[in-house]
């Protein structure tokens, strides 16, 4: 792995532990191992990108953190506590949000009902301050498209609308960190732009983000740091702006 000189953003912030710490993460689909000893961190309020080509293991990394695939890790800590043994729903209750790539809207439920399923009580940060809390009204401000269709069934929405709903649904849980899987995948360019704006707004509210992306321009708008993975292994890490000056790294790993 090449470690860029300007490297580890968390190096400066030793005072507080990172929000998410992953060390030596292995993951499997059945008998096939997909991830090999992946390590990464996400600091508080930080937006971090996982970059890599199709099939590199980006989505699997997010699923593995969330406990949705078979996994093993030397260390998996969230908000300073070991969470390696927690079931998926307990991770979500600690404030770890997950937005799947394929959206997974509950198609038989209305927009309002989808949001209600994601609802969780407000939570406190580790230092006792209240974490940013979300209500349906706030989310309809963030995604005005959704406001007019509260009673529409999830199955009758366009791809872009579903993409907004899946993010909004996860936000209803008042997460501290959102694992965001390819939000720019398969939606119209105008929606991509709106998504980027919304995600930036979330970041400014203090939400931490781990974003899986293939589209470098999208992550350039949002993310401070980048991890590049291929074949389930970490290949490069560093500041986002560092990567933009390294075209050979980008072309090596087919980053668009």
């Amino acid at each position: 792995m090449t470690d860029a000189a300007q490297g580890n953003a968390t190096a400066g912030g030793e005072a507080t532990a990172p929000l998410l710490e992953v060390e030596g993460l292995d993951a499997w689909y059945g008998a096939a191992q997909i991830l090999f000893g992946l390590s990464l961190t996400v600091g508080r309020g930080e937006a971090v990108a996982l970059l890599g080509r199709n099939g590199a293991g980006k989505s699997t990394t997010l699923k593995a953190i969330m406990g949705l695939v078979e996994r093993r890790a030397r260390r998996l800590a969230f908000d300073g506590q070991d969470v390696a043994r927690l079931p998926t729903h307990a991770l979500a209750r600690r404030g770890l949000g997950y937005v799947p790539e394929d959206r997974r809207i509950f198609t038989g439920l209305t927009v309002a009902e989808n949001l209600d399923v994601g609802r969780q009580p407000p939570r406190l940060l580790a230092d006792g301050r209240p974490a940013p809390g979300w209500t349906t009204e706030h989310l309809f401000e963030l995604f005005p498209n959704l406001a007019g269709m509260a009673d529409r069934r999830g199955g009758q929405m366009s791809g872009g609308e579903q993409q907004m709903l899946t993010l909004a649904r996860t936000l209803m849980g008042n997460p501290l960190l959102v694992l965001l899987d390819e939000p720019s995948e398969g939606v119209a360019p105008i929606i991509v732009e709106q998504m980027a704006q919304a995600i930036l707004a979330l970041k400014q509210k203090g939400l931490s983000i781990l974003l899986s992306e293939q589209n470098f321009r999208f992550c350039e708008m949002i993310c401070d740091r980048v991890y590049v993975i291929e074949h389930g292994e970490l290949r490069w890490r560093g500041m986002t702006r560092g990567l933009s000056s390294l075209p050979e790294v980008k072309s090596n790993y087919a980053i668009l």
């Binding site: 949705l68 998926t88 729903h89 979500a92 799947p100 997974r104 198609t107 399923v117 849980g173």
Partner: peptide, 19 residues
Amino acid sequence: RLIRAATEDREMAAALGVN
């Protein structure tokens, strides 16, 4: 609502914090 959500996709329901 939680029953209907879990009927469609229990894994996603769990990822949203449904026990």
